[in-house]
Structures are given as structure tokens and as C-alpha cells.
Amino acid sequence: MFSGFHRLKDMGIMGINSRNLDFIAPHNRRQYYRLVDDKVITKKTAIEAGIPVPELFATIEYQEQLKRLGDILAQRSCNQFVIKPAKGSGGGGIMVIKGRTAAGYLRANGQVITLPEIQYHISNILGGLYALGGARDVAIIEQCIENIDLFDKLAFQGVPDIRLVIYKNTPVMAMLRLPTLASGGRANLHSGGIGVGLSMDQGMTTNAILHNQYITHHGDTDAPLLGHIMPDWDQVLDIGVKAAHMAKLGYVGVDIVLDKHHGPMLLEINARPGISIQIANRQGLKARISSMGL
């Protein structure tokens, strides 16, 4: 561990303090955070800017509306949807419904859940349980992403997403995040998801990490992780740049999902993107940025 004291700097690795002071503080203005912190606003702005996003089915703003939740869900006659907090962070509070059974709704992990349980979950979201600072929040019900064949092969349940780090409107680093059994369908690395580094030129998987350890195969599916090429890579990069531009932020993380039928779509924008992406790519962000001449 101590042998790495100088190496970190030599490798151009970005620490949290440096990310906050040297990248976020000078390039991200507070006033623009609202757009990315609230997923409802992100979605609306993205539609105006012509960026594809998962379709919004409904928003729940008041406890009152919960009584009609059954009707709202039935109206859509859609059995697949995702419930998430508008201001959530770190993938908290996301509930994926994959279908309906006689007993109730079927979650992505196979668990059957009743309508009152869904109502309770949404009421927790409204109370601000998952929001930054515990402020009141709004629940979003949106289209459930249908995985492309490649992702069905790679991921264990859940929806993988591609995280792009965009600096000064240029994509500098990319990572594919795969849910695992342990991460409970979530793709976030600290929930136990797998991070896979992607080459910037064609979106090819290069290294994979799980809990800061390098791996080559998915532990749950045994699928080999390296050497795959992301489909529609140019479109992915294009969405990333457009989203960063739209958010008016100089240093952002853009999360993009790939839908079987609709192609790449913007999921959310993060004004404080994590630094683990460096491990997945085996390269420091500072080194990457300076090598790109930014």
C-alpha cells in the first residue's frame, strides 16, 4: 500500500479531493445542478433537446395520488415499469417491475410484491428517504428498459448502463456497469456491481473489476467479460456530449442505457461522477485528460 504513495500521482489518478476542487468546483456551476439532480427535469429538458430517454409513464407527487396508483398502473396496461425517486442518488430506491401475476406484481429478482407494498415504497420516496438531504421528493414511473442480447448474456438480472465521463464536452472515459446477484439488480459499483472499462474509440470492454479486484468473468453468469464491443457506440458518445452540453456542466458523468428496440437512451446525468471508473480502465483520469490535450 505504501509503495503506491508516489505511483498514484505518477499515474495521473484523480482523488476525490482533487475531483471536487480541481474539476467540479471550477467547471460545474451550482445553479445548473437542479437540472441533473431532479430526474423529471432532466427528462423533460432532454426531450426538448432531442435526446432519447426512457418514456415517462407517470409522476407521483402527493400521498393522495397513491390511492389511485392501481388505476394509474392499469391505465397504462403496461406490465413492465420502473419506479424511482426523482432526486435519488447512488441507485437508491429503484424498484423494477417485470410483470404481473395473480398474487401481485413480479419484481425483477423474481419476488412477488403486492400493490400496498408498492404504495409503501412510493410513500417512502415521497417522504424523501432516498433524496439528498432527506428533502421531499417525487416518484417517477417510467418505461422499463429491455436489454440488448449482449447485456442479457453479460448481466445477472437488472439493466446494465454505460457511464461516460464528459469533460469540457469531450468524452474522456467510459465504463460499462453490470448488475450482479449481490448488487440486487443495481449497476452501481459500491452496491456490488461489476465495472468494465471501455475503450473510447469503439467501446470495447478492456478490464473488469468487482469490489476493487480485477476479474475476467461474471461471477454469476460465468460469461467472459472482455473483448465485447458496445453496439451503437457513436450514438452513445453523441448522447453523452449532448447531455453534458444540455446540462451546462463542464465535468459530468452521463449514464446511458441500451434498449433492444429503442437503442441508446439517456438515463441520468451526474454532476459528481465517481472515481472508480479509473480502476475499471486501469488509467488515471488526469493522465487521460492530459493525454487528450484538454
Binding site: F2, F5, L8, I13, N20, I279
Partner: peptide, 15 residues
């Protein structure tokens, strides 16, 4: 803006 002590541990795989 330097590294946190824990980051030396966090990025140990890379070094």
C-alpha cells in the same frame, strides 16, 4: 487536493 490516505488503499490494484 491531494489523495486521501484511504485512496492509496482503494487504488492499490492499479499501482
Amino acid at each position: 487536493n491531494g489523495y486521501k490516505l484511504m485512496e492509496y488503499y482503494r487504488f492499490r490494484m492499479m499501482t
